[in-house]
Amino acid sequence: MATLAMTYRISLYSKRTDCVLIWSYCDYAGEIPGIMKTFVIFVTLFALAACADECYKDVVAACNPTLSKQLAGIANCNAKYGGIQELQPDLQRFANHLFFRSFDFLLMATHYGNYIKNRPGFEKLFRGLSDSLWSDGIETIKYITTRGGQMNLNNIAKDLQDEELTSPSLELYEMQSIAKALDVEKKLALQAFDLHKSASGKKHESHDPEIAHHLEEEFMEKHRDTIRELAGHSRDLSVLLSGPDASLALYLFDQHLQK
């Protein structure tokens, strides 16, 4: 029992306290002798003090005319549970990454919309990718807040900040632009995989099957199809551009993209 109680005490120091545990240990108290009982009760009291993260307690205090004057609000009545606290910064970076790439694709679409490039099909393709990442970004913010989190639009990954400084050219030839888009979409998909790994991993603080499930359903399926589509385009283009008339091939391919 002592070992059990000790394990339990240690778990109190972790960020996520399982308040339910207290009561199961209290039930054991009846079966154990004197000194141990005192110890368990002591631990339980200690636990109750540390385990103040309960909405109900806050409400009881807030509704009590004497206590409510000292205690501020119902801070523990929130939607947070599971791994959101731990995964929130990663989710924020993911959302900001989506916006960043949405702007990249918007610029790529713009390039194909000028009168010299004049490829309405490519313009449509990249505009579609941009729109899609933009709404994905908004959905990610909504999701973070659904889980009791908070968005931070300034939380941008270091490599993206560096990329912003060097601002690599997005005015690319057709084949190159498809290749670039494919790489970008894969990177986003892999970032979702990383998040999924943390959410479904063994680490207690970040374990969160709901986040993992959400990523699977809302992002991974969509990104899978986009990646397949872009890979298909690059295969088609690679064959067409090795033919005798690349210019005509590009014209026809662009027509195909407009559909």
Partner: peptide, 23 residues
């Protein structure tokens, strides 16, 4: 952007059109 494209603009320097310091 579409308006500028219609008027024959944005044939170069498109990459610098959007700065990401929009925070």
């Amino acid at each position: 952007i579409h308006y500028l494209l219609m008027r024959g603009e944005l044939t170069s320097g498109v990459s610098d059109l959007i700065k990401r310091s929009l925070m």
